[in-house]
Design a protein around this nucleic acid. Structure first.
Lengths: 248, 248
DNA sequence: TCGCGCACTTGATCTGGGTCAAAGATTTTT
DNA sequence: AAAAATCTTTGACCCAGATCAAGTGCGCGA
């Protein structure tokens, strides 16, 4: 859900303020009407668990506002975040019974859900929706594998820079700003959540953010508001060769 | 491609000695005949690169014999393996232009390929194939995310045990042995390749294998042939709570 | 306004795994 | 069968990041 190539196919959804990236624009109105019929909203407070790993999950949907995370936990409490869900991201596993991960609301959260059974039935009848879902799942697979490189081979400093890069890009694409040079955004995660995403401790996250600040790669207003004076420099710190087509 | 829940839908393919997990058993014979028409074989020697990251990839297919790996590389040479392709595993990204990773033959390798354009056309006409691909991609996504936990949070010893667990399971399912208690299999990877999969150095891999041997968790005949006297013990060493439904 | 709680920072110390180096062991070449 | 190349093991040492331990600062309820 961290890849932007899918946005173009999205469509406005009734009274949602966001676009559902799950739904294909080429699908005709009668299918969209059917989607409206099986649609409902759910709200969660910050810190609330949307669904536990292994539990039956009888819906799919998109994040409307707020942030949710996908995490895996070992018995001894070690946790690894395996996905970050920002507004417009899709949640759910069509064709699967339960959830594979804990889904947790990191901030107050509103989701637009579709009941799974009818959604799957609609998918059967509407090839475009199945193709969109395949596209999206491939995007998520790419993002997950790119993150494997971050987790397995990057230093703490590179990990922080990589995360900032991703958040900055997502933020820029949501706000339709053209990120030439400097960028400004809010960190949607606590230091601890960042640590769980990056396979670090929260102390190391804090130290590396301080180091990036000291070295002029970023500056902070308060604890969460970030200014990146030179995005290319940040990419360099992330050890990232590509700019993901976001610059120029 | 490390998840076993998809095997049941597979189908024998002409003269391939393996089952293509990509192709749905419910598809009728005329579609299978069309698949035969666009099918061809490719062989690679150990060490040969099947395709470079970013290069145009005009086929999809399955591994028939041998092992291939998916790897990502940083400019400075650090590499992370993001996928391990064993016989019957699917390779390819329907709907995508190029490869996202380097695909490398780790041993001598034979692949059964389908030309991508006609395969995609067939997919358009045959919803079952699209659904099978979505299933498979979800399996790979689950495997990738499970691996994120391994890379981000497990110790070197747990990482080695996790890898052995996966190889043992795959091997058991290919050979249709029921893995009650002890298991025997060959390591299909060099120490260096294991290190690249696990985000370690080859020295650490070697040391941890020696430690598991010393502690009686495994024993080695030669450098590659592994005996696991007690699979439950290995799972415990991997920090893995679930047995993945392979035991009992 | 006070004080409590939570998120964050910073310091001191420890350690798991990396790095560097030197041998085995196995396979391949000649 | 000797030589060369490759893969693997093991040892000695080091360092990035973990752990343990105080703090700091901000928001919020009383």
């Amino acid at each position: 859900m961290l890849n932007e190539r899918t946005v173009s196919h999205s469509v406005e959804c009734g009274d949602c303020p966001i676009r559902h990236r799950a739904v294909c624009a080429r699908c005709e109105s009668d299918e969209l009407e059917r989607l409206e019929e099986i649609k409902y909203y759910r709200s969660f407070e910050a810190g609330q668990t949307v669904i536990w790993s292994g539990d039956r999950m009888d819906f799919v949907g998109s994040v409307v506002t707020g942030i949710a995370t996908l995490t895996q936990t070992m018995e001894d409490g070690r946790t690894q975040m395996v996905g970050l869900l920002l507004p417009s991201d899709f949640v759910g596993r069509p064709g699967r019974e339960g959830s594979a991960y804990d889904v947790v609301a990191t901030t107050d959260l509103v989701m637009c859900c579709f009941r799974k059974k009818p959604f799957e039935a609609l998918m059967e009848r509407t090839p475009h929706i199945a193709h969109r879902l395949l596209e999206m799942t491939l995007d998520e697979l790419d993002a997950a594998r790119e993150w494997m490189l971050v987790l397995g081979r990057k230093t703490a400093r590179e990990k922080i820079a990589s995360l900032l890069t991703i958040i900055a890009r997502r933020d820029a694409s949501l706000n339709l700003r053209t990120p030439k040079g400097s960028m400004v955004f809010d960190l949607p995660l606590t230091r601890e959540a960042m640590a769980d995403y990056l396979g670090l401790t929260l102390e190391t996250v804090s130290r590396q953010i301080s180091a990036l600040k000291r070295d002029g790669v970023i500056s902070l207003q308060g604890k969460r508001h970030v200014t990146v004076p030179d995005f290319a420099r940040l990419l360099e710190e992330a050890g990232d060769d590509s700019d993901g087509g976001m610059l120029a």
